[in-house]
Amino acid sequence: MTQRVKFYQTGTWTVGNRLLDAEKRTVQATTERRNALTSGHRACQGCGEALGARYAVDAALAAANGKVIAVNATGCLEVFSTPYPESSWQLPWLHSLFGNAPAVAAGVAAALKAKGRTGVRVIAQGGDGGTVDIGFGTLSGMFDRNDDVLYICYDNEAYMNTGVQRSSRTPAGARTATTPAVGPHPGNPPGQGKNPALIAVAHEIPYVATASVSDLHDLEDKVKKAMSISGARYIHIHVPCPLGWGARSCDTIKLARLAVQSGLFPLWEAQDGEITKVTPIRRPVPVSEYLKLQKRFRHVLKDEAMVAAIQDIAERNIRRFGLLGQGEE
């Protein structure tokens, strides 16, 4: 369990690592961190996905004693990390297609089982488009068969690699290249989209969690926990995209935190079809605090009804997950 440090050294709550017992410090803070996604890659400045991937894969490697194979869907993460003939990956890594990473990973896991290579673990990763849209059939199949794979989705809420088009994770009101801020109802229409983490829970797989790059301890704990379990596991990580969201590169962590604290991106865990843990919101903020830092919502802020509708989404999350309650710490 994460030890919550009550001593806030800075306004960003990033402190505390050095005040913890050594074994409770983050993987990222240790000198042995593996840098699975090493420096030199071509991600944008402030890329939430690059950060999330390094956090998650390093944590997985630490949990599996370095014996991890990664499968990657097509997308930003794949493109910026492996421009031929270079690679930023410090672990065996396979990219096949946009929509098949879960199935490819299932095949890798089957091969390891057939070969008796126990101890080697499989993770698969992709963005929201590759995971929640084009790859959703294969993801559901992987859940259904309970394949021994940890799937990690880095959710930046649109197709960033192809130039910021709408995905089924694009939030209500957001402007993208295919939901432009024009006409009487600008931006992404409300009432659309899906929640893959809850759909994963509906598959009753052993472990599901949501996480954010704003809470490194929590993210690493969830990866570690997922790696301690076998079968199909799913972690959905919220990763801001400065380019696609129209935000400052230095605001990536802040935006991720505001998404959590406003209730728009609840953090929770589920095991075998039941939600087992919810991270309560410590200091609630109105959604406008989150929206106003992003150009994709600029038109929304002029529309009170739309802001209210987005606030309603946040309130519903807060009610549904009990985010203001005494959620287990």
Binding site: P102, G107, G141
Partner: peptide
């Protein structure tokens, strides 16, 4: 593997073959 589509059938043997 009883997969959910032919796309997954070929994808999973891609993974298996790549893993040796």
């Amino acid at each position: 593997l009883n997969v959910e589509s032919e796309f997954a059938a070929m994808s999973s043997v891609i993974g298996a073959s790549a893993a040796g």
